[in-house]
Design a protein around this nucleic acid. Structure first.
Lengths: 121, 121
DNA sequence: CTTCTATGTTGACACTCGTCGATATGGGAG
DNA sequence: CTCCCATATCGACGAGTGTCAACATAGAAG
């Protein structure tokens, strides 16, 4: 890992339509933009996190209870740990409703990634 | 990191138009597909690698000599190490021509990522 | 041949990461 | 209140990662 400081947060913020960084093919990436993009890719660089993310993204209603997606072959604390990472990267939002906690994909995440790739969504 | 085996290689292969995995939002990601996608994102999850990648992707002619892109604030061995990682992930190809080594973005990498996001390039 | 330059490899180090069991917290039910 | 269930946090462990200096290799030029 780079020895630079941890990028603490928000890669993306709710309501942003234009995302954090210019397209990756548009020119030399500025160091600060590279940090933000790297943090986003890093959050998606684990198979378990990708499976959790895709389960939420493809769940009817756009949201999923942890209990709906927890079956990914690792322990409950590990699932919680991964969901926290995705939350910290700005990719997911969570909301407690009664006994259960519901996660959904943060708005404009897909659009942000598309912009990085120089595609219009 | 996941304790599963290392995904040794080719996330993408030259000539592939349809990439390794279904769109991330299309449904629950299969474990094997998640491994492949994670390996790709992992390769892009470092700021230095992202800057190298964007320098190559945006370089005139679609290729760049190492000497053109090596100025990213780390030592020469570290640059070489990161380029190797990107090569192993199938994101870059390299070719030696005389004294210099030229890197280019592997074909259909961008299209593959676009497909993951369920966008048509 | 030798020398120089460009790039890759090796080995070591500190740090980060994914994982788990144990424990804590939060809220509904009785 | 107590009990139970869902989720989060803590602490520890082994594995992996980024970095560098030192060295190795490849090719051009003298």
């Amino acid at each position: 890992m780079s020895k630079s400081e941890v990028v603490e947060l928000p890669v993306l913020q709710d309501g942003d339509v234009v995302p954090c960084c210019p397209p990756i093919t548009a020119g030399e990436l500025a160091p600060a933009d590279a940090e933000k993009m790297a943090a986003m890719f890093k959050a998606l660089s684990d198979p378990v996190r990708l499976r959790l993310f895709s389960k939420i993204a493809s769940h009817p209603g756009g949201e999923a209870c942890v209990c709906d997606i927890a079956d990914v072959g690792v322990s409950q604390p590990t699932v919680s740990h991964h969901l926290k990472k995705l939350r910290e990267a700005g990719l997911l939002t969570s909301e407690r409703r009664g006994t259960w906690v519901y996660y959904r994909v943060a708005p404009s995440v897909v659009a942000a990634m598309a912009a990085m790739l120089d595609l219009r969504a």
